[in-house]
């Protein structure tokens, strides 16, 4: 894992989540903005996947369990498209809120992934 990239990713996910929540509570149905920031979160997750595959080969192995790391990463990668799919099917403002919740969940999951990779608190 690349530390600065991970923190940037957490920041983007939190921001995207807050934007979607704000848009949702303001009564906006899913639009290019909310779906756009969710897409950005997803792209960063895919980038993180590439980093996770390459990093151990480049002398940056995880200190924790790699399978546990991947459970989080794969769940996160699946989560955002699910929320996006929901947003396209159900055109209500609550779908925008759901998008926001998914982005915030991704932020937490990426943070957990960072912990698994770097800090062992056992």
């Amino acid at each position: 894992m690349i530390e600065w990239f991970t923190w940037a990713q957490v920041g983007v996910a939190v921001l995207a989540g807050l934007i979607c929540l704000a848009l949702g509570f303001a009564g906006k149905i899913p639009n290019d903005y909310s779906l756009g920031v969710a897409l950005l979160v997803e792209l960063l997750l895919l980038a993180q996947l590439v980093v996770a595959i390459v990093a151990p080969l480049a002398g940056n192995p995880p200190t924790g369990s790699l399978p546990e790391f991947y459970i989080y990463l794969v769940s996160a990668i699946i989560l955002v498209p699910l929320a996006g799919f929901w947003a396209l099917v159900e055109r209500t403002r609550w779908s925008t809120v759901v998008l926001g919740v998914a982005c915030l969940a991704v932020a937490v999951m990426v943070y957990r992934m960072y912990q698994i990779w770097t800090v062992q608190v056992a």
Partner: peptide, 24 residues
């Protein structure tokens, strides 16, 4: 109903989180 939808979404995420973690 809409709030219920959000509740369902959060429950779904928690279900995935708890399942993934406990299985592992």
């Amino acid at each position: 109903l809409g709030v219920g939808r959000v509740l369902v979404a959060v429950y779904g995420i928690l279900a995935i989180a708890a399942t993934g973690r406990s299985v592992f």
